[in-house]
Design a protein around this nucleic acid. Structure first.
Lengths: 256, 256
DNA sequence: GCGCCAAAGATTGGCGCCAATTTATCGCCT
DNA sequence: AGGCGATAAATTGGCGCCAATCTTTGGCGC
């Protein structure tokens, strides 16, 4: 039923009372499918550092609008996963050699502390999770490169979860992503990211509550990863060559 | 001079060559004045957790357009400094009690490691910087609340800088901001954030290259800060009251 | 008097269009 | 034949408008 009498015109609204932001579904942009897609593409190394992320292409690829892509890209830029250059566009982030070393150093610090905290808080459920993961990692298909990468990441994330500190968990997530970028930028092609035997060792030491041993194993594991990358000496030259080869390849594929 | 002959119409452009994003001024959004303004306002506690950050108001306050504000707010939301709720707006982030504890735990881990690294890398220039800061902190006006807060933050940032790891430096920056939010949310009103004598002690121990002592002092310093906050039991009630008092205060200041 | 309902106001979200800049291509000159 | 400048295409950046949603507020019934 409609109102029988129109409201009077009010001169001006009073100062709005401040309502606290109550618990109302703070769904963050991390759950965004575009962000997730780009993130998994990067961690699976299907997007290489320096790759152009055109807005229109991403929009049509993900079936959304350009404005949505822009939000996702600027979010990823805030996380230093993509680099945005004004009027040029967004590219997959390429860390410098110094930054790559800093990332590994940060991981040494945070993940050793994480291992220690995980041992402190280890309970029945945690042991079960850890065992389950170790089994999955033991009998996975080593030829499936993407599955290997996913499992390797999940192990470190699991340890961070067991530590029970969400802030450290988020930091570990960020550092693992940036580690992927560092490795992709500076690796000698063809080598795996992690040595395949490191994770079972660390897991066993955590289950045995051997704090010093687990910390040492984790530190050694990260140092092993770090020693697998090398600075690119004639970086400009190499880049130019690869750029030329890419160009030639593109031309050949285009049938020109 | 104009062209004498018009160009032929080309059927379609070939696949664009991939240009690497060379060193071209990657000026990030961190330098944005809006971001900087909100950040300093938060670290100076002029913006309290839960405060509404309306887009129009910020736009007129900073003298820019709304789209610019949106970019800044979503960037700050990515850094968990503001919380964005769909169709409700942006608010200064209010960490939960568990998150506040996690933040302090993360700082214990990162800043103790940072102190250790700073001692390792300490050189003439670093000593000079540290001494200069300690002098400034020794003879600053203790009644100037904003200056105190700035100096307190600068000390921790300086230690992180001396460690020579930019990734850890960024993490320390983030954690200090979130510490401000945690303290602002859970502090008993009126107490200072840092005990005033802690920083000179830590600085002196770093200068003396007393690693164990400096690490212990830093850990103790952070634990002291942590023990200054208490979970809010009747949270709703307190929040409502403070909101009322804030409103009344604003009206009085506005001369209403 | 107290609580529910509906409308107006205010705020955010999103889409389309256009300007600004970059990138690629072509013709010309040396 | 190859470098150089001009031009078109493509891409990004930004502004304005309008729909969607939330908040406030007054009216109405109990």
């Amino acid at each position: 039923m409609k109102r029988t009498r129109p409201l009077k015109r009010r001169p001006k609204r009073s100062e709005p009372k401040h309502r606290e932001p109550e618990a109302v579904d703070p769904r963050s942009i991390d759950d965004d499918p575009v962000v997730q897609g780009i993130l998994t593409a990067i961690s699976q190394k299907r997007l290489k550092p320096g790759a152009k992320l055109g807005e229109d292409k991403l929009a049509s690829a993900f079936g959304t609008t350009r404005i949505h892509i822009r939000q996702a890209l600027s979010h990823l830029a805030s996380r230093k996963v993509v680099m945005q250059i004004p009027n040029r566009g967004a590219f997959v982030y390429r860390p410098s050699w110094e930054e790559a070393q800093d990332i590994f150093a940060a991981r040494r610090i945070i993940e050793t502390a994480t291992v220690s905290a995980a041992i402190d808080r280890l309970d029945k459920a945690g042991k079960a999770e850890l065992k389950a993961h170790m089994e999955r990692e033991a009998r996975h298909d080593r030829n499936d490169r993407w599955a290997s990468l996913s499992l390797t990441a999940e192990f470190h994330i699991l340890v961070a979860k067991l530590a029970g500190n969400r802030v450290l968990l988020e930091m570990s997530r960020e550092l693992m992503l940036r580690t992927s970028l560092a490795i992709a930028t500076f690796e000698q092609p063809g080598e795996p990211d992690c040595s395949p035997d490191a994770h079972p060792d660390i897991g066993a030491l955590i289950l045995a509550r051997d704090r010093a041993g687990a910390i040492h194993a984790m530190r050694h594991h990260i140092e092993e990863m770090e020693q697998r990358i090398r600075p690119k000496e004639g970086e400009d030259e190499v880049d130019e060559l690869t750029a030329i080869f890419q160009e030639i390849g593109a031309r050949v594929r285009a049938g020109g």
